[in-house]
Simulated scan of single mutants.
Amino acid sequence: MTELDWPEILLRLGAATLAGSAIGLNRDLQGKPIGLKTLGIVGLSTAAVVLLAVEFAEPGRINDAASRVIQGILTGIGFLGAGVIVHESRGFRVSGLTSAACTFLAACLGIACGAGHWKIVLVALAFAFVLLTVGRRIERWLHRALGGNEDPHRPEAKPHTPPRGSG
């Protein structure tokens, strides 16, 4: 059994809370239905459960019990993400997928923080912010460059206005 000291526990739980909250802040600033508090709690709770499981493992190893805990977390997070999608669905139009994916990411970051894998947390968080910050612009640029159709139902898609004097 591994006994973690207070600074290590504070670091792992604090990092998970901050990572989840940072992703949540992005969602909140975008006006999405999930935000800083929710994803901060997702990161914190997953890290706490993994930390508890890691406490019973051999130093530096994830045992079978910890593996089952992680599997259970990810299954449960799937339901939370589905709730975000269903909440945002309008008719046959599905929305909220990015927020659901962010919920899953916050859980995964919480798991990584609970296990103490800091490099993975930092790289995943950096990639997430690149995608969340410039992903839509890259997507639009690729659609134009490759001749794809932009989704006209997206709120950020510019409405088609006929040229002046044509009717």
Results as ranks from 00 to 15, higher is better:
residue 87 H to T: 10
residue 109 L to Y: 07
residue 92 F to L: 13
residue 130 V to L: 11
residue 111 I to A: 09
residue 139 E to M: 04
residue 89 S to N: 11
residue 135 G to A: 08
residue 79 F to R: 07
residue 155 P to C: 13
residue 109 L to T: 10
residue 74 L to R: 08
residue 127 F to N: 12
residue 84 V to W: 00
residue 80 L to P: 01
residue 83 G to K: 06
residue 87 H to F: 13
residue 107 A to G: 02
residue 85 I to R: 10
residue 110 G to C: 10
residue 157 A to E: 05
residue 148 G to E: 14
residue 84 V to N: 10
residue 81 G to C: 03
residue 99 S to Y: 00
residue 125 L to D: 05
residue 155 P to E: 15
residue 133 T to A: 14
residue 113 C to S: 12
residue 140 R to L: 09
residue 132 L to W: 04
residue 135 G to N: 01
residue 150 E to K: 05
residue 146 L to Q: 05
residue 97 L to M: 14
residue 132 L to H: 08
residue 159 P to R: 06
residue 100 A to V: 05
residue 99 S to D: 00
residue 118 W to V: 13
residue 114 G to C: 04
residue 86 V to M: 14
residue 96 G to F: 00
residue 84 V to Q: 11
residue 135 G to C: 07
residue 152 P to Q: 01
residue 100 A to Y: 00
residue 152 P to M: 01
residue 72 G to Y: 02
residue 131 L to C: 13
residue 111 I to V: 15
residue 74 L to N: 09
residue 100 A to Q: 09
residue 110 G to H: 06
residue 76 G to P: 06
residue 86 V to I: 15
residue 126 A to K: 04
residue 74 L to A: 08
residue 108 C to F: 07
residue 105 L to V: 06
residue 153 H to L: 12
residue 104 F to V: 09
residue 85 I to N: 09
residue 77 I to L: 00
residue 113 C to M: 10
residue 130 V to M: 05
residue 104 F to Q: 08
residue 80 L to W: 02
residue 103 T to G: 02
residue 107 A to Q: 01
residue 70 I to G: 00
residue 113 C to G: 08
residue 78 G to Y: 01
residue 101 A to D: 07
residue 138 I to D: 03
residue 73 I to K: 02
residue 138 I to V: 15
residue 135 G to P: 02
residue 138 I to S: 01
residue 112 A to Y: 04
residue 113 C to D: 09
residue 92 F to N: 13
residue 158 K to Y: 04
residue 80 L to R: 03
residue 122 L to Y: 09
residue 156 E to R: 09
residue 154 R to W: 03
residue 153 H to F: 08
residue 75 T to Q: 12
residue 74 L to M: 15
residue 94 V to C: 04
residue 74 L to I: 15
residue 100 A to I: 02
residue 74 L to H: 06
residue 78 G to N: 02
residue 117 H to G: 08
residue 117 H to I: 15
residue 116 G to M: 07
residue 148 G to L: 15
residue 159 P to D: 02
residue 123 V to L: 10
residue 89 S to A: 12
residue 86 V to Q: 11
residue 113 C to Q: 08
residue 158 K to P: 09
residue 140 R to V: 11
residue 129 F to V: 08
residue 121 V to T: 08
